[in-house]
Computed example of a mutant assay.
Amino acid sequence: MELDNLGIILVTFTFVPLILCKISKAAKYYIKMVFYSFSLILVSWLLIPVFLLRPKNVKNLLIYANMVKHLTIVLGIKWTLRGREHLSQNKPCVLIANHQTCLDALGIYRTRRNTGEIHAFKKGAFYTAIHHQVPIIPVVFSSYRHFMDHKKKVFDEGEIIINALPEISTIGLGIKDIDDLMERTKQQMIDVYDKISEEVSEKSK
């Protein structure tokens, strides 16, 4: 009897969400968001021991991203990473990424809001990079707007391109150079963001 009840529970939690996803876009949105959020928490907990053994190692980001990538296949999300070599270096750096939603829960310092453009950065990341004389590595995520819309409760299938750019040196720079460094970094990211966002948008048509 207990096995029968367990079977009913498993079927319910497997097929009911699938059916709801087929008949309601809003249900599909919420089910996918819950699944993804739970996956992030699970992966984070599983990797805590690894990160404690490898503190401040930029390759931890690749391990985390690789695990999340496989989990999000269930959501119909395809991740394409470009410039992996820039994230595989064994030296300290500051990562700057254009954070849009919880889907890109990666990176250290980020500029927020999913409005289809890259907004002004916070200066903290640049102070840190200059103070420690370590390079900045920009990481650009393509727009999600072709498959995700929080206001309309839409979460369809789609592709996300992550493009890690060559490092930007801060050697010899001082506090007076922060604004120029921020502008140079932002412009590089905008150019790549526009290009890869157009690419994924064209593929989705």
Rank of each mutant, 00 (worst) to 15 (best):
P49T: 01
V68W: 04
T128C: 01
I96S: 00
L18S: 09
I41Q: 08
I31D: 04
A125Q: 01
I168R: 01
I63K: 01
G83Q: 02
L6Y: 14
L75A: 06
L165R: 05
V134T: 06
V140G: 02
Y36F: 14
L181I: 09
I19W: 12
N66T: 15
A65F: 15
R113I: 13
W79Q: 07
A125G: 07
K78M: 08
L53V: 14
H132K: 09
H86I: 05
L52G: 01
K56L: 13
M1I: 08
K203G: 01
D194K: 15
F38P: 12
M33A: 15
T101S: 15
A65E: 13
Y193P: 02
K59L: 00
E202P: 03
I175V: 12
K122A: 08
S44G: 12
C21S: 12
M67I: 14
V68D: 03
M1N: 06
R84L: 14
F38G: 15
V34N: 09
L61N: 14
A105L: 11
R54S: 10
T12P: 02
D180C: 09
Y109T: 00
V68H: 06
I108Y: 04
Y30F: 15
D149T: 00
F13N: 07
L53W: 09
I9W: 11
R54G: 03
S39D: 07
M33R: 12
V50R: 02
A105Q: 10
E167C: 05
I196T: 02
T185D: 11
K28M: 04
A120R: 10
Q133C: 10
L103C: 09
L95W: 09
S142E: 11
L18M: 13
I8H: 11
F13A: 12
D180E: 13
F121K: 01
P49R: 00
Y109K: 00
K195Y: 14
C93D: 06
D194M: 10
R112C: 09
M67S: 06
M33I: 14
I137E: 01
K203A: 10
L47M: 04
L87T: 01
H86R: 05
F51K: 03
R113A: 13
Q188Y: 10
S88E: 15
P138A: 12
I8E: 12
G76Y: 03
I190Y: 06
I63S: 01
V200G: 01
N114F: 15
D177V: 00
I118Y: 05
L103F: 14
A125K: 00
H131V: 07
M67L: 15
I48W: 08
A129G: 04
F38W: 14
A65V: 13
I77S: 08
H146W: 02
L87S: 00
V74W: 15
S37G: 12
I136M: 03
I136C: 04
S204P: 08
H86D: 08
Q187H: 11
Q133D: 11
G124W: 02
S88W: 10
N5L: 14
V140A: 01
F35E: 04
N57W: 06
C93Q: 09
A26I: 09
V94D: 00
A26M: 08
A129C: 04
I175R: 14
D156R: 10
C93W: 02
R145C: 04
E159V: 07
D177E: 03
E117S: 11
L165C: 07
V34Y: 10
L10E: 12
L61Y: 10
N57Q: 10
